[in-house]
Computed example of a mutant assay.
Amino acid sequence: MKTFTIEQARAATSSGGVLSVNLKPIGSMFALEFVTHNGPAMLIAAVSKQVRRFSNPIKAFEIVRELGLEGGHFSVAEWHPEEKALDRPTRPDKAAALKAAHQAAGLKHLLDERVNLANAPDAIWHEAEDVFAELEIRNAN
């Protein structure tokens, strides 16, 4: 089957090569299928080259309108919204990155708090030798 990126779909539409568009359900998502003079063509993502899926059909309709197409067909016969959890891939790399970012933000907050306490006018300063001596006494018991 032929595929179009959004730019290719825009060019094909402006040259009159696209006759209509269908909103096609795929699991819990939707895809745009263009009817062209040369047969059907699916809208794909420019980077991944995979069929572009829309969880919200309104976004697909916005693209249809942006392309200058006035109408088309849609069917919800094969739409299965209960499969939403299956259609969304898990992103353990993203989860790990977000967890690390949250931990870093917590440490930064703690550091900022400690710096503010140290910069307070009523802060009490101790000599390093006294602090280490006190720590040695605590750890010795």
Results as ranks from 00 to 15, higher is better:
Thr13His: 03
Val47Gln: 11
Ala105Phe: 07
Pro121His: 08
Ala46Glu: 11
Asn139Leu: 14
Leu43Asp: 00
Phe4Pro: 01
Ala85Glu: 08
Lys49Ala: 08
Ala12Asp: 04
Trp125Val: 08
Phe132Pro: 04
Glu7Arg: 08
Gln8Glu: 15
Glu113Ala: 08
Thr3Lys: 07
Gly39Trp: 05
Gln103Ala: 08
Met42Ala: 06
Ala140Arg: 11
Ser15Arg: 10
Thr13Gly: 00
Phe4Met: 01
Ala85Ile: 13
Thr90Gly: 04
Ser75Phe: 04
Leu43Gly: 01
His126Gln: 10
Ile6Arg: 09
Ile44Phe: 01
Gln103Lys: 06
Gln8Asp: 11
His73Asp: 09
Ala123Pro: 00
Phe34Val: 00
Thr90Ile: 13
Glu62Met: 06
Lys59Arg: 12
Leu19Phe: 06
Val76Ala: 14
Ala123Ser: 11
Ala9Ile: 02
Leu110Phe: 15
Asn38Trp: 11
His80Ser: 05
Glu113Cys: 10
Gly17Glu: 04
Trp79Tyr: 15
Thr3His: 05
Pro121Met: 05
Ile58Val: 15
Phe132Met: 13
Asp122Thr: 08
Ser48Thr: 08
Ala85Val: 15
Phe54Met: 03
Leu67Tyr: 04
Val35Met: 06
Lys94Ala: 12
Ala11Trp: 10
Asp130Lys: 06
Arg114Ala: 14
Glu66Met: 14
Ala12His: 03
Leu107Asn: 05
Leu43Val: 02
Gln8Arg: 14
Thr3Pro: 02
Val131Gln: 03
Leu69Pro: 01
Leu111Asn: 10
Val47Gly: 05
Asn139Ile: 14
Phe4Ala: 00
Ala140Gln: 13
Val115His: 08
Ala77Leu: 11
His109Leu: 09
Leu86Ile: 08
Arg65Cys: 12
Glu33Trp: 03
Ala101Lys: 08
Ser14Met: 07
Leu23Asn: 00
Ala60Ser: 03
Asp122Ile: 12
Gly16Ala: 01
Asn116Phe: 15
Ile124Ala: 12
Lys99Thr: 07
Ala128Ser: 13
Gln8Met: 05
Lys24Arg: 10
Val64Met: 11
Leu23His: 00
Glu70Ser: 06
His80Trp: 07
Thr3Ala: 09
Asn141Arg: 09
Asp87Trp: 13
